Amino acid sequence: MTTLTFTPDSIPGALATAPSVREQRGGLTLVQLHDGLIRVTRPSGEVLGYVESYQHAEGERFRAKRFLPRQRRFIEIGEFWSRNDATDCFRFA
């Protein structure tokens, strides 16, 4: 029996989509879950929400959704033309 072990370093292009890819931005931690979804958390691990990308007739758009833990639901904060703008709204909202 042969066991193959893959790491993000061994697969070309995998680093951008690996679930363990983390980025620190403006006091927030961004975790790439898959191609179109980023989880936004505080450094403590508290989930603030998600940024999802989708295709619009005029190009790629980003939708920010805030998580409300007491109500166990998401509310849409807004739609943006850049991922940076979408993640910044979690810092100021």
Score class of each variant (00 low, 15 high):
K65R: 07
L4R: 11
Q32S: 03
Y50C: 03
H56G: 05
F6N: 02
A16M: 07
H34M: 04
R61S: 12
L15M: 15
G26S: 13
S20K: 15
A16Q: 08
E52R: 15
P12M: 06
R70V: 15
R91K: 12
S20W: 15
L28Y: 00
I77P: 10
D35E: 14
S20F: 15
H56D: 08
P19A: 11
M1Y: 12
E46M: 10
P8A: 01
L15T: 09
K65E: 11
F6L: 04
T41F: 08
R39M: 00
G59L: 06
H56R: 11
A86P: 09
R39T: 05
R63E: 05
I38V: 14
F80T: 01
P8Y: 02
P19D: 03
A14D: 10
L33P: 04
E58G: 12
R83E: 10
Q24P: 06
D35A: 12
I77V: 13
T3C: 05
F90T: 03
V31K: 08
G59V: 04
T29G: 00
V31S: 06
I75H: 10
G45S: 08
F67E: 05
H34K: 07
E58P: 01
L30I: 05
A64F: 03
N84R: 13
G27S: 09
D35Y: 15
F80C: 05
R91V: 01
D35N: 11
R63W: 03
P12Q: 06
T17E: 11
E23S: 06
R70Q: 13
D9N: 11
E23A: 03
E58H: 13
P43H: 01
F67S: 04
V51K: 00
V21S: 13
E79G: 08
T7V: 07
L4E: 06
Q55V: 14
S10N: 04
T7L: 09
L48K: 01
E23M: 07
G45C: 04
F6Q: 05
R70L: 14
A18P: 10
T87V: 10
A93F: 14
L4W: 12
P69W: 07
R61G: 12
L33W: 11
A86L: 01
G59D: 06
D35T: 13
T3I: 07
A57C: 15
M1L: 15
H56P: 00
F67N: 09
E52M: 12
A57T: 12
G49H: 00
E52N: 08
D9G: 13
R63C: 07
E23I: 06
S10L: 03
A64K: 00
R83F: 04
N84H: 14
R63T: 03
E76S: 12
L37S: 02
L33I: 11
D9Q: 15
N84Y: 14
T87Q: 05
Y54D: 12
Q32H: 06
R42E: 12
V40S: 02
S82M: 08
V21Q: 14
L48F: 02
F62E: 07
S20V: 12
T3W: 09
W81Q: 15
P8D: 09
Q55L: 09
G36V: 05
E60F: 14
Q71W: 01
R83K: 03
D88T: 10
V51C: 01
S44I: 03
Q32M: 01
F90K: 01
E52C: 11
E52V: 10
R91A: 07
C89G: 02
V51F: 00
F62A: 01
Q55E: 04
T17P: 04
R91Y: 05
D9C: 13
